[in-house]
């Protein structure tokens, strides 16, 4: 039912919003094939704690995550979720958020229309929704495909 409504909203929006209601100019459309986004190995220049954490994350990426295949059904992946959670809050709260995420990952029926999908086919589950601050939650009904969720926002 939710899906159905989302579809209706989508069509209403698409039919209503016309190209020419905002001025546009010429656009060079690249011929190239879009590639999947690469993992971000950059180490933030924030606090020493963040640097240390990013170092561990990179070591984990390089030695394990890059080699053991694509196992995480979520976007952002569990390790990214952890790092983002700690950045968003603090180490303790980030850890709790990660533990909760890990349990939800273990749930065998998690794909059952509860989460929205990210455009790469993964379940979208942004850490901002779990900080216990109500206004930070971006609610998206389950089952909908979301084009580009910007995790930096």
């Amino acid at each position: 039912m939710k899906k159905f409504f989302a579809l209706i909203i989508f069509f209403v929006v698409v039919l209503h919003a016309q190209t020419d209601w905002v001025r546009w100019s010429g656009a060079e459309i690249s011929y190239e094939i879009k590639k999947q986004e690469k993992k971000n190995y950059a180490i933030g220049n924030a606090s020493p704690g963040t640097k240390f954490l990013s170092g561990i994350k990179n070591a984990y990426y390089f030695l394990i995550s890059d080699l053991d295949g694509d196992n995480c059904p979520f976007y952002p992946s569990c390790s990214n979720f952890f790092v983002a959670s700690v950045k968003e809050t603090n180490l303790v709260q980030g850890g709790l958020m990660f533990a909760d995420r890990f349990i939800r990952d273990l749930n065998p029926i998690k794909g059952l229309n509860h989460y929205p999908f990210y455009s790469n086919g993964k379940l979208l589950d942004p850490p901002e929704n779990y900080t216990l601050i109500f206004n930070k939650i971006t609610y998206i009904p389950g089952g909908i495909v979301v084009g580009d969720y910007d995790s930096s926002k």
Partner: peptide
């Protein structure tokens, strides 16, 4: 099993990525 499967996935992904680079 995890690393064995990951190894095959990586081989496939790398080949695909290389091909996309060549095409691009």
């Amino acid at each position: 099993l995890r690393f064995y499967r990951g190894n095959v996935q990586n081989a496939e992904n790398f080949a695909r990525e290389r091909n996309i680079d060549i095409s691009n």
